[in-house]
Design a protein around this nucleic acid. Structure first.
Length: 227
DNA sequence: GCGACAG
DNA sequence: ATCTTGTCGC
């Protein structure tokens, strides 16, 4: 039994959130990214514990030039606490409102967090990519679940992230001699395609440009609103 | 009970 | 995310 959860209705309790993840995970699909990628989106959320406010930004880039061509932002109060494995219910509401403000739908989207490298194989990148209807990739700075061996120090080196006998992602060295990032399938993309896209966005920094720039943008929003 | 634990 | 000083290296 599966259904499509309304994008603008979010759960307030843990158990309802759990049921939603178990429902949505059945709808995830992982296939090679077909067709040319001309635009790519980056999403990030920032929140201040003090004001309990959230700042969201969705940036759309021209993939070839890696320049911003569209932007959507949103500010609101917190509606859900931070619980490992439930990040999408904390960030989803504000991220979705920011998403509604862009006019160019990106061909693929990068998230600051995991895709299927998640306790129930339904992290933020998978969840939001699914309800937004856009191929998505998870790029996290730290592990949530799984086991792996350290990749070689050269840019491009990678090892598998294994969880419950499944390959749920890749530990990828995006730049030489920097800490690796955790790349995982969000939805409508396979792991090889995901890694290829992430590497293409990391010519100058450890994190891919779309999420890196979205992060700078939300911090700018917060500074402007709070100080 | 103990350790792990995206942002 | 937030708390926090200095510091090593491209």
């Amino acid at each position: 039994m599966s259904r499509i959860f309304p994008p603008h209705s979010w759960p307030s309790g843990y158990h309802e959130a759990l049921r939603i993840q178990e429902d949505l995970v059945q709808r995830l699909r992982f296939e090679p990214l077909t067709g040319p990628v001309e635009t790519i989106g980056g999403v990030d959320i920032s929140y201040s514990k003090k004001s309990r406010r959230m700042y969201a930004a969705v940036l759309v880039f021209d993939y070839a030039r890696m320049q911003v061509i569209d932007e959507g932002t949103w500010i609101q109060d917190e509606t859900f606490p931070y619980i490992p494995g439930m990040l999408t219910f904390r960030e989803g509401p504000a991220a979705t409102r920011a998403m509604e403000k862009i006019s160019i739908r990106p061909d693929v989207m990068l998230f600051d967090g995991h895709g299927i490298a998640h306790p129930r194989f339904c992290g933020t990148a998978s969840h939001l990519g699914l309800i937004w209807g856009i191929p998505s990739i998870g790029v996290a700075k730290k592990k949530l679940v799984g086991e792996y061996t350290e990749p070689d120090p050269e840019a491009g080196s990678a090892t598998e992230l294994i969880y419950k006998d499944r390959v749920v992602g890749r530990v990828l060295r995006t730049r030489t001699n920097v800490k690796p990032v955790f790349v995982s399938q969000g939805n409508r993309i396979d792991l090889d395609s995901a890694v290829r896209v992430v590497l293409a966005c990391c010519s100058r920094h450890r994190l891919p440009e779309p999420t890196r720039r979205a992060h700078l943008r939300v911090n700018e929003l917060r500074r402007k609103a709070e100080g």
